[in-house]
Simulated assay, not measured.
Amino acid sequence: MTIQPIIITSDLDRLLNFYTKLFGAVEKYRIPDGEPAFFIGLQIDDTELGLVIDRDVEVGTAGRVLLSFDVSDVDALLDQVEALGGRVQGPPNDMSWGQRVAHIFDPDGNAVNLTSS
């Protein structure tokens, strides 16, 4: 069994740019093949992330889903978030269990954690 998180967005290209540039996501496929796409499947290391378009979806408020990315350097990625259209919620914190954690929002307002051990 595989579980794939899928983000619903009104601007597919904006989120594609954000996740590609910030996390090095690689486009695996799009449906339909070619333009305009309804769905884009991304590969980020050994994880898949889906982006699907719904022009009527309201953006800007975080939903009930939190995406968490384990990255090599939280601080280095924080410097890129706002330039790519996201928003940094606050400075990173060193947690008592040994992780460094920062909370950000993608350009649609989806909550994203950046963590490193």
Rank of each mutant, 00 (worst) to 15 (best):
M1Y: 12
T2Q: 12
T2V: 14
I3G: 05
I3R: 03
Q4L: 00
I6N: 01
I6H: 00
I6G: 00
I8Q: 04
I8L: 07
I8P: 00
T9N: 02
T9H: 02
S10K: 05
D11I: 06
L12Y: 05
L12K: 02
D13P: 03
D13A: 10
R14I: 04
L16T: 03
N17E: 14
Y19E: 02
G24I: 09
G24L: 11
A25V: 01
E27H: 07
E27F: 07
K28T: 14
Y29G: 15
P32I: 08
P32S: 12
P32F: 13
D33Q: 12
E35N: 15
E35Q: 15
F39A: 01
F39M: 07
I40L: 05
I40K: 06
I40V: 13
G41A: 04
Q43A: 08
Q43V: 08
I44N: 05
I44T: 06
D46R: 11
T47R: 09
T47N: 09
E48Q: 03
E48H: 01
G50Y: 00
G50I: 00
G50N: 00
G50E: 00
G50H: 00
I53Q: 03
I53F: 03
D54A: 04
D56M: 06
V57F: 07
G60M: 10
G60K: 11
G60S: 09
T61G: 11
T61Y: 14
T61W: 15
A62Y: 07
G63A: 05
G63S: 06
R64Y: 12
R64K: 12
V65Q: 13
L66E: 11
L67Y: 03
S68F: 06
S68A: 14
F69G: 05
F69D: 04
F69A: 09
D70Q: 15
V71K: 08
V71H: 08
V71N: 09
S72F: 10
S72C: 11
D73L: 11
D73W: 13
D73R: 13
V74M: 09
V74L: 12
A76Q: 14
L77D: 05
L77V: 07
L77Q: 07
L78I: 10
L78E: 06
L78V: 09
D79Y: 11
D79C: 13
D79K: 15
D79W: 13
Q80V: 06
V81T: 02
V81R: 02
V81Q: 01
E82S: 09
L84Y: 03
L84I: 05
G86P: 02
R87L: 06
R87F: 03
V88G: 04
Q89A: 07
G90Q: 07
P91M: 09
P91A: 11
N93W: 13
N93I: 11
D94N: 14
M95A: 12
M95P: 03
G98A: 04
V101F: 12
V101H: 12
D106K: 01
D106A: 05
D106N: 07
D108W: 02
D108M: 06
N110V: 04
A111I: 11
A111Y: 14
A111E: 13
V112N: 04
V112F: 09
N113M: 11
L114T: 12
S116G: 15
S116Q: 15
S116F: 13
S116A: 15
S117G: 15
S117I: 15
S117M: 15
S117L: 15
